[in-house]
Nucleic acid binder design. Structure first.
Length: 334
DNA sequence: CCTCCACTGGAAGATCGGGAAG
DNA sequence: CTTCCCGATCTTCCAGTGGAGG
């Protein structure tokens, strides 16, 4: 069934990207100064999830690496590395200067100084999900780092700027914006055809099945590819030569359940207790939630901390709030 | 329209654990 | 060993928000 698992992985970057010629052109022309060893102005890629922002950014960097000697690149996922320290540490890793920073008692902002020392050749940096960054002042410092070019990726442009510090915003107003729209069904089918051709045995999946997956993914390529992968894995387990419609239709919820399970494993015991309470309820008000929480765990945190936990679980898309103000209720995402 | 109040999340300080310096 | 400093996490305090109900 599966001939090559890599094209079915979410982080796979194809050698030839479909349906995004305009966006690629815009990004590569924005990065053109790097070809001459200068640093490029920041570029902001924005649009809904699964529209190819990360893929196109990685693709453009790959191409750039082929054309520029002494080019360093790094991709930081700010959703995981959401503090100043972690972001800078990741950037130092990209230029192999993070080796002895394991010690925590490095003087304040030694990381930034070190990064500035290290970047004597062009360094192009992707900050993915930059709207998840909590200490946005690091953007200001990076913007002022010689030889460092920023490619920022965010879902919602407006929300991003609302969260940014004033001095960061003013620097980024000149940034080139590239907007990514949702894929149409036929575009998604095209993407899936490629992945199926590269990753699956011949004739493992029909055009109709790919169309069904594309349809159910609602313009999100990540969901579509994840569904195809879940279907292929299920087919492999069952020893099928060709996917049946039933396996394909079961794969969509399975792909989502896998993501949720992975996120649940990242929660602490306290957070997990909160999730369980919300999951058992059919919509619960915050004060009632906290009350139950205090009876469930031995050493309950304060309500403020619990609110931070809720924020985190919302980011993981595990729970969702309904209503505002006093009418607020939390429920688990099904 | 106005007030109340549950809810929200920013800011600042305390605490914890780990590692380095003395 | 103790002391100091770091990032991460938690607590304390509090101002802002917007439904609910007068």
């Amino acid at each position: 069934m599966i001939a090559d698992a890599r094209p079915l992985q979410p982080e796979f970057v194809p050698g030839d990207v479909r349906h995004r010629d305009g966006e690629i052109d815009a990004l590569t022309s924005a990065l053109e100064p790097v070809l001459e060893g200068r640093h490029a102005d920041p570029v902001l890629l924005h649009g809904p999830s699964g529209t190819g922002k990360t893929c196109i950014a990685r693709y453009a960097l790959e191409k750039l690496r082929g054309e520029v000697v002494d080019l360093d690149t790094q991709c930081v996922n700010c959703w995981e590395d959401y503090t100043r320290f972690k972001t800078l540490y990741r950037l130092l890793e990209g230029v192999d200067r993070a080796l002895d920073v394991h010690r925590q008692s490095t003087p304040r902002d030694e990381l930034l100084d070190r990064l500035r020392d290290a970047t004597d050749s062009p360094y192009v940096v992707i900050l993915d999900e930059v709207d998840q960054l909590e200490e946005t002042d690091v953007l200001y410092d990076l913007h002022r780092t010689r030889n460092l070019s920023l490619v920022l990726i965010a879902n919602a442009e407006r929300e991003l700027f609302a969260d940014l510090e004033g001095r960061v915003t003013s620097r980024l107003t000149t940034a080139m914006r590239v907007e990514f729209a949702r894929y149409g069904v036929s575009e998604l089918v095209g993407i899936l055809e490629d992945r199926a051709r590269w990753g699956l045995q011949e004739d493992a999946v029909t055009d109709g099945q790919l169309r069904w997956i594309a349809d159910s993914a609602a313009g999100d390529a990540r969901v579509a590819i994840g569904t195809l992968r879940a279907a292929a894995e299920a087919g492999e387990r069952e020893g099928l030569e060709r996917l049946t419609d039933e396996v394909v239709h079961d794969a969509a919820p399975k792909a989502k359940a896998e993501i949720r399970q992975k996120n649940l494993e990242k929660l602490t015991d306290d957070q997990r207790a909160l999730y369980d309470i919300i999951d058992e309820s059919d919509g619960i008000r915050p004060d009632a939630l906290y009350e139950v929480y205090c009876t469930r765990v031995d050493d309950p945190r304060t309500d403020r901390t619990v609110r931070n936990y809720l924020k985190k679980m919302r980011r993981y898309n595990l729970i969702e709030p309904e209503g505002r103000g006093k009418a607020r209720q939390y429920s688990a995402v099904s």
